[in-house]
Design a protein around this nucleic acid. Structure first.
Lengths: 189, 189
DNA sequence: AAAACAAACTAACGCTTGTTAGTTTGTTTT
DNA sequence: AAAACAAACTAACAAGCGTTAGTTTGTTTT
């Protein structure tokens, strides 16, 4: 197990605070107090508050992009690809619930990295849409509006961070399966 | 049509700014500039920045509570109640997309009103859960984990504000129907 | 015409913000 | 023992924060 650098520790603690109050409401003095040091000392390890946010969000966004590219290039059925996407979100979200909160709520405070982030996001959604449209074309998926389907599924998956920690007892494979059933097969008998 | 007071106008404009940057990142000077006046002049109409957030969030939360109580006390089937809940969210969200953003993202910055808000929220979720459990008990709904179902549906509905404005062409009845189909019946054939 | 009111203004307040500069301390490498 | 380094510190900065006090201006009510 690789030991965490001081910089990584700061970023991890920052993500936790960002989840609770949002990026703008967390001060460098708040972060320093949570680390048990003075605010100025943070700058021995990080360049700026902004850089902390960049590090949290961009690494996560790239992880999602990588995952999607793998799924996209497989030749599984559309329904199986959706299952894989659900597993991707469950895995990443459970590994970094604090970072996922920043990704969801504080992306608009990215500055230099904002355009890059938004491109990753748009591309991800485009890939998702294509999977759904292929599924409709091949008759695997019901012919409803793919935009609404994508919104519904993706919103649920993006919000997993709110909810995953409360279910530590539930193992992640089981959670993926349940989500797959509910999101894909619906809830009525 | 009742004309808007200056105070209501400030609250409406504030909600729009809060949606874009979050409560903490919006300054009273930002808000004043958006209103075309100086920051100090805002205080002729409102008591504090905090009060603006309270007004936005609490009125919406109470609107949801009222709607839920009506649905709860009707004697419709569980599936029909779910449909009504979807319609409730579509209606309120489309009427106040900016306020819904604050409700979702800035509720933790409520201060005196935080406990009250959280009670409304917990009660709402309790009512929702009971509807699902009744549906499972009566065999209307598939016997999966009601917690996951509720999370999935409620997360989608709570995020409508992100997405409704892009679909102005789509009428709201149609959107409710499509959401109902996807959330309840699923997407696979 | 006088009084009252709504809604803007200027000026300033005390406090907090992110960040920098320079220094101290203790450990590790030469 | 000397040099280098990592990681903390104190002190301070300029800018921005929410908010208050007191004033001006123009309209509406008496």
């Amino acid at each position: 197990m690789k030991t965490e650098t001081r910089q990584e520790e700061i970023i991890r603690v920052a993500a936790k605070l960002f989840k609770e109050k949002g990026y703008s409401a967390v001060t460098m003095r708040d972060l320093a107090k949570a680390m048990g040091i003075k605010a100025a000392s943070l700058y021995n390890h990080i360049n700026s508050k902004q850089d902390i946010l960049n590090a949290i969000i961009i690494s996560l966004a790239e992880e999602f992009t990588e995952g999607m590219k793998l799924i996209q290039s497989s030749n599984e059925s559309c329904i199986d690809k959706l299952k894989k996407i659900i597993e991707l979100h469950v895995r990443i979200s459970s590994q970094n619930i604090y970072g996922m909160a920043s990704l969801n709520n504080d992306w608009m405070h990215l500055e230099e990295k904002l355009d890059y982030y938004q491109k990753l996001r748009v591309d991800y959604e485009d890939d998702f849409r294509i999977i759904l449209k292929d599924g409709i074309a091949s008759g695997e998926i019901v012919n409803a509006q793919p935009e609404v389907m994508m919104f519904s599924i993706l919103t649920t998956l993006r919000s997993l961070y709110i909810w995953v920690p409360k279910k530590e007892d539930l193992n992640l494979v089981e959670l993926s399966n349940t989500l797959n059933q509910i999101l894909v097969k619906g809830i009525n008998k």
